[in-house]
């Protein structure tokens, strides 16, 4: 039951883009085509899950025992930057085709605030998910991160689909580009607000 709640809550109710405003820059940047949008979502999904696993362990076994919580921000961003670099090198060797497909999106993920945001959230915030409010365990944290990144992918793919249709329309001059995109996201976010009834 708790697992189901974590998944539904992370994907729909607290959607990372449409309710938490994380990772907006790549969201607006690469969502004009469906294919690039799904590539980016896959890369983000991979990095968020891995980064949360590593930073969670780092926080629990290194920062907390030595009373170094104030170094969280610096330590996490370094870990994420190193991790992205590593993922890039490994992918290049193991699966050149996937590496090609993800292309420039991989290095960009370092500065995607969704990654750092989720990593910080799972170690500092208390969650409920149908239980009394508690700090997340490792399994829950990783599951939450994975589900959150699925939510990112969902929002991205939905929006890319909308934008492909939008490109064919005659939009007034001052609305062209980002303004109309933002207004569209606004309406999409309104639709997602409906999910908060589930929680």
């Amino acid at each position: 039951m708790e697992i189901l709640l974590i998944i539904v809550s992370a994907i729909f109710v607290n959607n990372i883009v449409l309710a938490q405003f994380l990772g907006i820059c790549p969201y607006l940047g690469v969502s004009s085509k469906l294919s690039t949008a799904s590539g980016m979502s896959a890369a983000v999904c991979f990095v968020i899950t891995l980064a949360t696993l590593v930073t969670y362990l780092l926080n629990k076994y290194l920062l907390l025992p030595f009373g170094l919580e104030f170094l969280q921000t610096i330590a996490f961003i370094l870990v994420i930057a190193a991790l992205v670099q590593m993922v890039e090198i490994v992918l290049k060797k193991v699966s050149p085709s996937l590496y090609q497909a993800l292309g420039i999106f991989l290095p960009l993920i370092t500065t995607n605030c969704a990654v750092l945001g989720v990593a910080i959230n799972v170690v500092t915030k208390e969650f409920t998910f149908g239980l009394p409010s508690h700090m997340l365990g490792l399994g829950e944290a990783v599951l939450y991160a994975f589900a959150t990144s699925l939510g990112y992918g969902l929002a991205m793919v939905l929006f890319a689909g909308l934008r492909e249709h939008l490109a064919l329309n005659d939009v007034p001059k001052s609305f062209r580009g980002v303004p109309i995109a933002l207004i569209t996201v606004g309406i999409l976010a309104m639709a997602f607000m409906g999910f908060s009834g589930i929680a």
Partner: peptide
């Protein structure tokens, strides 16, 4: 959330 996107869009 929706208001944030809408207001920024229209201000732009």
């Amino acid at each position: 959330a929706p208001g944030a996107f809408l207001v920024l869009g229209y201000l732009m």
